[in-house]
Design a protein around this nucleic acid. Structure first.
Lengths: 353, 353
DNA sequence: TGTTAGCACTCGATGCGATAGAGTGCTAAC
DNA sequence: GTTAGCACTCTATCGCATCGAGTGCTAACA
């Protein structure tokens, strides 16, 4: 059967109506709504065809139609008018991204919160892969005789820190000297770019400089290797409670639970995308996670240095306002990427050593 | 009417039964359960008295009884057997508290998560008042020509950092020198202990040392004044969905919403306690927050240097397992306080300047 | 050939009455 | 003081009739 223009118009009308009301759409509604001057009977015939084509389904015999996964897919891929309207309320985020506060965890959390608030859906933020960003500066901060904190600042002024313990008593001057050596070797590079041979060489060189460096390098390389917290944040999980499709408490709970299962969320936001697409939409049964079979997920990835280093997702009901979600995500990701880019520029005027 | 021993036994039986089942308790149930050899009719008489005393209520005429706020209060204050049984699963937290990872936000968040998981209720963690803890060390980390990060480590190896911008171009050596000056003046003191006069004097002294210090001191004092993030974290908010009393979606949503209103949560965990009590229990209608009228809140405060600096709370249904919650909270708070105490000891062996 | 009016049919939602059952309060007997 | 017995109350549940939205089909129409 051919999907002619009229069928498309009707499908679109059904979907848009359903997006608003969350109620099955009947032929009369469409007949009145569409300015085609067609009676409900004609619409019924067309709807019957659309159902046969698998684009819409009937919850039960005497109900209206709702879009199927396939129907949404068609809508998202071809029918949806991408409104590039500028988003308000982003100023708040802008402020954050302008380096005012740069604790990675807090930043990502805040991003998720804002996204959840803007979209009214649930946001899932995947931590950027620290190891793929460039080290701007390292600094050892002495704490007491046997411990210090290693502060690492990477591009985007992302700060992370770990406690390091040593076997030999520390002097404050030692930490300064070690800091200088560390920066000399590592500043301006990404963690990933450091080969094992190089690391070994660095270690030897450092130990030659001071016996005390011994434990330090191990701790550092340890941190670099393991401390890349692959992690996800979920924000606005409870937003889904506002949608009638999840007013069943059991279903709501199942969703809540899955939102807090980190491995499932990680598999969800997996940003293993083709190079050219930066936005992935998974609709209903296309989801691999059982509990999300009635949900849609829009995932946007962000890049750094040409590589995907993380992603941001929105999870909502299948009748999600795809248009707005995509617009918001797009804006958000671009801003976030700019944060890294801006700092790369500034990098030119380094503090003079 | 006198609350004799038998009445107390019956009340206790009613409460304990209701804690388990969340169903109104009938006279027959008590008659069978209590080894007093009393018939249900006798129990009914006693229950009638207990109701007259306001300790139990009937949801409707032909239903069993459930404890009233007053009844729970009596139970919590006098009847409950405080089982000091040691808690398992705390090892995880122990690890965290042993300085392995010391980002304040993450630590507090993790504490909330563990508490929520252990109790199966919702945990609310109030950030410790940074300003009342003692500064162990400050460190300026240069970023680029016009910005650097001020890292502050306080007792308990709590790390916080803020970006500082300057008008004058920076040299790396400057940041080292400034760091030394900062530590000389501020290390070992609490933010609160610094008087305005003292601060002004410090500023003058610093500016004499270097013109570049100008903007720096302002930024620092700014950070100390405003950056004490009075904040709360809510963990396991969705746990309450598991309780039948909140299976009504509207009520569940109202609760969820209130959990995310930071000011309300702050008012909730207000740790304005009498000096001698470290645990406050608010039951049902005793709550000032409307949405929590059916909930109970157990709040434990933690001290540092003799002052309350924060609190940890558990929110659950009125038929909460008070006993277990109190035990868990008590354990958690003690451990957390030890973290500060331990580090105070270590403080003796400072790194040699 | 496409469109439409008309109509029988389906099925969920709603409302109502009857019923069952849990639990009470009261009374009278022990 | 305790208890058996009983009438009473109230909720929860089930069946049943009804309503109405919406469909599919057929026949007539342009």
């Amino acid at each position: 059967m051919e999907l002619n223009d009229r069928k498309i118009q009707i499908l679109q009308a059904i979907i848009m109506n359903y997006l608003e009301t969350a109620e099955p759409v009947g032929s009369r509604t469409i007949s009145r709504r569409l300015p085609l001057g067609l009676s409900s009977a004609t619409i019924r015939n067309e709807m019957s065809d659309l159902e046969e084509m698998g684009l819409i389904v009937q919850p039960h015999t005497s109900a209206g139609r709702i879009p199927s996964t396939k129907g949404y897919r068609l809508y998202v891929d071809h029918l949806m008018g991408l409104s590039g309207k500028p988003m308000e309320r982003f100023d708040q985020l802008r402020g954050l991204l302008q380096n005012k506060y740069v604790q990675l965890d807090s930043l990502m959390k805040e991003m998720g919160d804002i996204l959840a608030e803007l979209t009214k859906y649930t946001a899932i933020v995947d931590m950027p892969q620290f190891r793929k960003t460039r080290i701007k500066r390292l600094q050892l901060v002495p704490l007491d005789q046997y411990s210090m904190i290693l502060v690492v600042v990477t591009d985007g002024n992302i700060v992370r820190n770990n406690v390091i313990r040593t076997r030999h008593p520390l002097q404050v001057e030692d930490t300064y000297r070690m800091t200088d050596i560390l920066n000399e070797h590592l500043a301006g590079r990404t963690f990933d770019a450091i080969t094992p041979e190089e690391a070994a060489a660095m270690k030897r060189e450092m130990q030659a400089d001071s016996t005390m460096m011994e434990g330090v390098w191990d701790a550092i390389s340890n941190m670099l290797r393991y401390a890349d917290n692959i992690d996800v944040f979920t924000s606005g999980a409870t937003n889904i409670l506002n949608f009638p499709e999840f007013s069943d408490i059991a279903r709501a709970r199942a969703l809540m639970e899955v939102f807090h299962e980190k491995d499932k969320m990680l598999s969800l936001v997996d940003y293993d995308l083709k190079e050219d697409e930066s936005m992935k939409i998974t609709i209903g049964s296309e989801n691999t996670i059982e509990q999300l079979k009635d949900c849609s997920v829009v995932t946007a990835t962000y890049k750094y240095g040409g590589q995907n280093i993380g992603s941001i997702s929105v999870v909502g009901p299948m009748r999600m306002d795809y248009d707005r979600v995509i617009g918001t995500l797009d804006y958000l990701v671009k801003d976030f990427q700019n944060m890294f880019a801006d700092n790369e520029e500034k990098e030119q005027k380094k503090p003079t050593e």
